[in-house]
């Protein structure tokens, strides 16, 4: 007996956001169905993967992670180029040195680093602040100005500091990451507040906050899934694409940090798999941009996405 494939009829779709400029411009979002249900709707753009770099030499990275970036770790522009060589769709520059406890670099210094990195690569650039609301509110508008016209993705804007960051994004022509603490209601509210400043809805990317595998991943999974179904049912304030800041979560897990043991096996393999499993799970929930650290993770995740993007036989 022939099986009838059940298809949901959605009334709306995800917003599509363009990042970067020129031939390497990337579009994310625009789906009319849940992730990878090609038999049911359109997925015009595959999820993409960014490699994350820092403006300072990372501390406490295991050798098998720092060694793949040997020679470029102190030089963000060279590091960014290396990421492009490894096949990154985007590069995410993390301005950790602006953190008050990690150098307290000035907005001008940070903007100069960001400009160097942007000049070195042709793929879209994500710039992440240090995560301290007041400092990011000062740094990111300066970065936005230095990168004006390059259509970068800047973040993260929270409910506490979104005003100056969004103003900077509007002036510099960038998209913004709207970040909320694992709370779909706050995510929606922040998107409303940002659009009230007259930033277009297709200039916003949602950071729902995530947990690594074993550290609350399922909370992020269900929030991202609800956002996607909300978007498909017509909720315009939850229809923005989702960024997954995977690297920072996956690499701080016990599983990624514990050296080789007889029970748990090789640390290198385990840590990379942790990053890959976290990213791919959340891509299946509805994530659009995964930010990871190890080029081998990047490779595995991109292979997985390529397989999932193949049309289904039915």
């Amino acid at each position: 007996m022939a099986v009838t494939i059940a298809k949901e009829r959605w009334s709306s779709k995800c917003l599509e956001v363009a990042l970067g400029s020129g031939p390497k411009q990337i579009k994310v979002g625009g789906e009319t169905t849940l992730p990878f249900l090609h038999f049911e709707g359109e997925t015009p753009n595959a999820p993409v993967v960014a490699l994350e770099i820092f403006d300072a030499q990372p501390q406490e990275w295991p050798d098998f992670l720092s060694s793949v970036y040997e020679g470029v770790l102190g030089d963000p522009a060279a590091w960014a180029k290396k990421c492009v060589e490894y096949g990154a769709d985007l590069v995410a520059l993390h301005l950790s040195r602006t953190h008050p406890d990690q150098g307290d670099a000035s907005p001008e210094d940070a903007a100069a680093v960001a400009a160097d990195v942007a000049a070195a690569i042709d793929v879209p650039l994500i710039v992440l602040g240090c995560g301290v609301d007041e400092k990011d509110a000062a740094v990111l508008p300066e970065v936005a100005n230095a990168l004006a016209g390059k259509n970068c993705l800047l973040g993260c804007a929270s409910q506490e500091n979104y005003k100056s960051i969004v103003a900077g994004c509007i002036a510099g022509g960038h998209a913004v990451i709207a970040s909320s603490p694992l709370d779909i209601n706050l995510a929606k509210q922040l998107n409303i507040l940002i659009t009230e400043m007259n930033l277009e809805t297709d200039r916003i990317i949602i950071d729902p906050s995530i947990g690594g595998l074993g550290y609350g991943l399922e909370y992020a999974y269900s929030i991202i899934e609800r956002m996607r179904t909300g978007a498909l049912m017509g909720d315009k304030m939850l229809a923005m694409p989702v960024v997954l800041l995977v690297g920072q979560e996956a690499w701080k897990t016990k599983e990624a940090k514990t050296p080789d043991t007889p029970d748990w096996g090789e640390q290198r393999k385990r840590a990379i798999l942790w990053e890959v499993a976290t990213a791919t799970s959340l891509i299946h929930a509805g994530g659009h941009i995964a930010v990871v650290r190890h080029p081998e993770s990047l490779k595995h995740i991109k292979e997985h996405i390529a397989k999932m993007m193949k049309p289904q036989a039915y």
Binding site: N185, L186, K188, Q189, I192, R226, G230, D235, L238
Partner: peptide, 15 residues
């Protein structure tokens, strides 16, 4: 029927 946010009275009117 719709996901809650503090501005729901406003979003209801803007749908």
């Amino acid at each position: 029927k719709e996901i809650y946010c503090d501005s729901y009275l406003k979003t209801f009117r803007q749908r």
